[in-house]
Design a protein around this nucleic acid. Structure first.
Length: 527
RNA sequence: GCGGGUAUAGCUUAGUGGUAAAGCCCUAGCCUUCCAAGCUAGUUAUGUGGGUUCGAUUCCCACUACCCGCUCCA
């Protein structure tokens, strides 16, 4: 991305964030108290948008299918579940920082080296009387000049100088001693500089259960789930036994998950608390790869149906070396956000890994018995795992548009429009009396509002000029606005009585429609 | 976690070591027959905590949050 387009996209993102706040889509969590890093709240319109997304996902994948059932698992998770799944031991990366270059390295990826470590206790500058006391070391691998190690050390100590005019070369190193080391990972292979001690970042939120729980009582430890999937695997047998389903079948769940991200970024994209929409689709081993491809297509079709066009999505077939060791195939579905192409969803063929680890962890059989073939085996699983908040953000970014329109006075102005698909739009229809000081118009508009509210989200507005009310609805993406005018109340002939104008958001075109047809017209288009 | 930047009203911005300004938005009223009209009135702000000072929104320090780059993302 070029600097210019990067700048443009930053501005675009700022506009989107500003609109989201101004119109009540997304607020910063605990804003009143200065904000909570990596957490966001949905305002009234954001909540409607999110409900529409989750409802539609549920409808398409659960309600309209016979082979997928729902689950709503607890967020607090038994430590044994996450030990078995590998999250307690493995859901962390030990990291080191280079003391000189400040580069961050993964401790497990540093190549071990041997050589002579030059240790120092500090440095001083005799002319100015400046000095610093701080242990530091540089590794000189065999065959390198020891003066190079000293030069590196001077560069390190020079960063503490307050007077930047002093040359690192004029620093005197203090307390030099050497040490022979073999196969060490404490130094940066790039420059020989000492690294910080490896720090483990476990990405799970730990908590304690029980009123009397004490720090020392290991058994009281519980976790906020880092993914919704584990409760599905753990309840797999109960669902199977109570639902009379046969493979292939799926269990779907929508819910909050928590990851203590080191670095939350990009608005709501990487949040510490987020919502997932996951399906674990259980199948015979021989069907796994085929079903992974089918799920990819099904999910791409879903995004199209909610208004995210296929050409803005990128499918990444994750290569062997980047895939989790248990996965035989993984696709990432990515979206072109203004801040870059980023993942919305992973469709992963996880083999029988999850059921096998819980079988082992619990000591109880997770096998499926096939009545026909009399076989007992572990089912495999395909997991389409979508980020709900990420999809919301994609919907918002995709919908945002500014167009230049010329008003009656010939002046150019900007019309901000959220072009949500009617299915996702937080408000489906605005209902306005043309004038608010004409009681007959107001009464009729209230009637229309009342008629529609059982079926959809309706926004009634009588304040300000009609044009302003239209524009206000454009900005929150309301696809239609209905205006009750003097024709509606029969002032211009009986033919037009009980008809209204319906104005479409994107084209701004209006047509006349009978009030009696309104409900059907709208329902046909928002389903 | 590192480096850089930012923080004034709901939004966008101005400004000052001594009463914080404007536009838009919003609310109420008047008016108004279809695309951000007009008039009148009104609400609302210096992120948090310290320090310097007679006095700090302004200067200094710390913290928090957000943005950009790096890093990370089972």
């Amino acid at each position: 991305m070029s600097d210019a387009s990067s700048e443009k996209n930053t501005v675009l993102m700022e506009k989107i964030v500003s609109l989201c706040k101004r119109r009540g889509f997304i607020f910063q969590s605990a804003e009143l108290y200065g904000g909570l890093n990596g957490c966001w709240d949905y305002g009234p319109l954001g909540t409607e948008l999110k409900r529409n997304l989750k409802d539609y996902w549920w409808r398409r994948h659960v309600q309209e299918r016979e082979d997928i059932l729902g689950l709503d698992g607890s967020i607090l998770t038994h430590q044994a579940v996450l030990k078995a799944s590998g999250h307690v031991g493995g859901f962390s990366d030990p990291m080191c920082d280079c003391l000189l270059s400040k580069a961050r390295l993964r401790a497990d990826q540093i190549t071990p080296q041997s050589g002579t470590a030059y240790w120092f206790t500090g440095a001083s500058h005799s002319e100015s009387g400046w000095s610093v006391e701080r242990d530091y070391a540089v590794l000189a691998v065999e065959g390198t000049d020891e003066n190079k190690a000293r030069k590196t050390a001077r560069q390190y100590y020079a960063q503490f100088l307050s007077d930047k005019q002093v040359s690192p070369k004029s620093l005197e190193l203090l307390g030099e001693r050497t040490e022979e080391v073999t196969e060490t990972t404490r130094f940066n292979p790039e420059n020989g500089s000492l690294l910080t001690e490896p720090r483990a970042f476990n990405l799970m939120f730990q908590t304690r259960m029980g009123a009397s729980s004490e720090e020392s009582d290991e058994s009281s430890i519980a976790y906020l789930r880092p993914e919704t999937a584990q409760s599905i695997f753990v309840q797999f047998k109960n669902v199977l036994e109570t639902s009379r389903v046969k493979p292939p079948f799926g269990i779907a769940q929508i819910g909050k998950s928590f990851r203590n991200e080191i670095n939350p970024r990009n608005y709501t994209f990487r949040s510490r608390e987020f919502e997932q929409m996951e399906i674990e689709y259980f199948c015979r081993p021989e069907d796994g790869l085929r079903l992974t491809d089918e799920w990819l297509e099904a999910r791409l079709a879903f995004y199209e149906e909610i208004g995210i066009p296929r050409e803005r999505l990128h499918v990444v077939d994750i290569p062997d070396e980047d895939r989790a060791f248990y996965s035989k195939k993984t696709y990432d579905i990515e979206y072109e956000f203004p801040f870059g192409i980023q993942e919305l969803e992973g469709v992963a063929y996880r083999t029988d890994y999850d059921l096998s680890v819980h079988q082992k962890g619990s000591g109880k059989s997770m096998e499926y018995f096939d009545e026909e073939t009399k076989e007992k085996f572990l089912l495999h699983v395909v997991e389409p795992s979508a980020g709900c908040d990420r999809t919301i953000l994609a919907l918002i970014c995709e919908a945002f548009d500014e167009e230049t329109v010329t008003n009656e006075k010939g002046k150019e102005e900007t019309r901000t429009v959220m072009r949500f698909s009617p299915r996702m739009a937080p408000i489906k229809v605005g209902v306005f009396p043309l004038l608010k000081n004409k009681p007959e118009l107001v009464a009729k508009a209230r009637e229309v509002q009342k008629m529609l509210t059982p079926y959809m989200t309706v926004f009634y507005d009588e304040a300000a000029a009609i044009g302003r009310r239209y524009r206000r609805q454009d900005e929150v993406g309301t696809p239609w606005c209905v205006t009750i005018d003097f024709d509606t109340i029969g002032e211009n002939g009986e033919d037009l009585r009980d008809t209204v104008t319906i104005r479409e958001r994107d084209s701004m075109k209006q047509e006349r429609i009978a009030i009696a047809d309104l409900r059907g017209f709208l329902l046909d288009r928002i389903l």
